[in-house]
């Protein structure tokens, strides 16, 4: 294993442990030694966050752990970005938000952090987002994916409005639609004609990678 690879691996470990001091130190060392920052992000930060997602799925990590790890990943990414010759090629552009009428956003925010850590570009429209705002943002931003969340059974029908409005606008085929949140299921996604459903952040990334 080369020096660079050892550092990337240590960086992944620091992300998993939410060890901010180590993550900052390792990122600065990677920069100082002139190692490839893009590879450090991919093999250190993304790999670390992938493992964090695995721990969450196995109920070894919980929301406070995820958020702490994600904050460390964010800090390390900001340092490593200084070493990038140009913005890394994004793996895809995602417009996301919580559907109109619903203001629950912790889960959605965590998914956004994971998407960014995995190399996707994310435009987070926040909560209580109308069909029109979703569609306009996706068109203007030339998104690949619309990711919509809800935790309320009373608002999940509003996701269907987004899909119907896209059809009316003749743009349904322009975007893949991914839904998530406690109030929706795989079956519901199929019923309303969404392209996918993910139960948590780690599954979201696996699904996006397949798209």
């Amino acid at each position: 294993m080369s020096d660079a690879e050892r550092l990337f691996e240590s960086l992944a470990r620091a992300i998993i442990d939410a060890d901010e001091t180590a993550a900052v130190q390792l990122s600065e060392t990677i920069l100082a030694k002139g190692f490839d920052s893009a590879k450090a992000i991919e093999r250190g930060i993304s790999v670390g966050m992938e493992k964090v997602g695995d721990f969450f799925e196995k109920s070894e990590y919980f929301i406070p752990d995820l958020l702490d790890c994600a904050a460390v990943a964010e800090r390390a990414t900001a340092i490593l970005r200084k070493g990038l010759a140009k913005e890394p090629v994004s793996r895809g552009k995602i417009v996301m938000g919580t559907i109109f009428g619903d203001t629950h956003d912790i889960g959605k925010n965590i998914v956004a952090l994971f998407m960014e850590a995995a190399g996707y570009k994310v435009l987070d429209l926040g909560k209580d987002v109308s069909a029109r705002r979703f569609i306009d943002a996706a068109v203007q931003w030339k998104a690949d994916v619309l990711a919509i969340s809800t935790l309320m059974t009373t608002t999940r029908g509003n996701i269907q409005n987004v899909i119907e409005q896209l059809r009316l606008d003749g743009k349904r085929e322009s975007f893949l639609i991914l839904i998530g949140g406690r109030a929706v299921t795989r079956e519901f996604a199929q019923t309303i004609g969404a392209d996918g459903y993910a139960e948590n952040a780690a599954e979201t990334i696996r699904l996006l990678d397949k798209f």
Binding site: A18, I63, P64, D65, L67, D68, A71, I106, N109
Partner: peptide, 11 residues
């Protein structure tokens, strides 16, 4: 802010 609060429960 709940995102910060939940993170700070650990940190």
């Amino acid at each position: 802010d709940p995102m910060t609060f939940l993170k700070q429960l650990r940190r």
